[in-house]
Amino acid sequence: MGRAAHMLGTTPGFLRAIGEARLITPHRSKGGHRRYSRYQLRIAARARELVDHGTPIEAACRIVILEDQLEEAQCTNAEHRRAAGSPNPPAAA
């Protein structure tokens, strides 16, 4: 956890807080140490960015979750368009 916090320029307490908010759930080593994936570190960095700009931690976690869901939905839509043979997304109204 200390190494991950150092990489993100934050504190272990911040990583615990976003874990408690269920933004990320680190894997545990056999010795009980928290292990973070690159994806989890990217998510944590985005949450930190929002918190650094004054967003409360709970709101930052919710924003990051919604951003992640939106990205996933956009990828799914793009896959469906490709499968349907429509390379261009529909124009916005």
Rank of each mutant, 00 (worst) to 15 (best):
20 E>P: 15
20 E>Q: 14
20 E>A: 15
20 E>I: 15
20 E>G: 13
20 E>F: 15
21 A>G: 08
21 A>L: 09
21 A>K: 12
21 A>Y: 08
22 R>Y: 13
22 R>P: 09
22 R>A: 11
22 R>L: 12
22 R>F: 12
23 L>P: 04
23 L>T: 04
23 L>D: 09
23 L>S: 09
23 L>I: 09
23 L>M: 14
24 I>T: 07
25 T>H: 15
25 T>F: 11
25 T>D: 15
25 T>Q: 12
25 T>N: 13
26 P>V: 11
26 P>M: 07
26 P>S: 14
26 P>W: 14
26 P>L: 13
26 P>I: 11
27 H>T: 05
28 R>H: 08
28 R>P: 02
29 S>N: 09
29 S>M: 10
29 S>V: 05
29 S>G: 13
29 S>I: 05
29 S>K: 07
29 S>L: 01
30 K>H: 15
30 K>P: 05
30 K>V: 03
30 K>T: 08
31 G>L: 02
31 G>W: 02
31 G>P: 08
31 G>T: 06
31 G>M: 05
31 G>C: 06
31 G>H: 04
32 G>P: 06
32 G>H: 03
32 G>C: 04
32 G>A: 08
33 H>F: 07
33 H>M: 09
34 R>N: 09
35 R>F: 01
35 R>S: 08
35 R>T: 08
35 R>K: 13
36 Y>Q: 01
36 Y>D: 01
36 Y>H: 00
36 Y>N: 02
37 S>Q: 06
37 S>P: 06
37 S>W: 02
37 S>H: 05
37 S>R: 09
38 R>L: 10
38 R>E: 06
38 R>S: 09
38 R>V: 02
38 R>Y: 05
39 Y>F: 14
39 Y>W: 11
39 Y>D: 10
39 Y>G: 07
40 Q>S: 04
40 Q>D: 02
40 Q>Y: 03
40 Q>R: 03
41 L>I: 06
41 L>P: 00
41 L>R: 01
42 R>C: 11
42 R>G: 14
42 R>M: 15
42 R>E: 13
43 I>M: 06
43 I>F: 05
43 I>K: 00
43 I>N: 00
44 A>N: 00
44 A>L: 08
44 A>T: 04
44 A>M: 07
44 A>E: 00
44 A>K: 01
45 A>F: 09
45 A>R: 10
45 A>V: 07
45 A>H: 12
46 R>S: 11
46 R>N: 05
46 R>C: 08
46 R>T: 13
46 R>V: 09
47 A>M: 06
47 A>D: 10
47 A>K: 03
47 A>N: 06
48 R>H: 10
48 R>W: 09
48 R>M: 10
49 E>P: 12
49 E>W: 14
49 E>N: 12
49 E>C: 14
49 E>H: 13
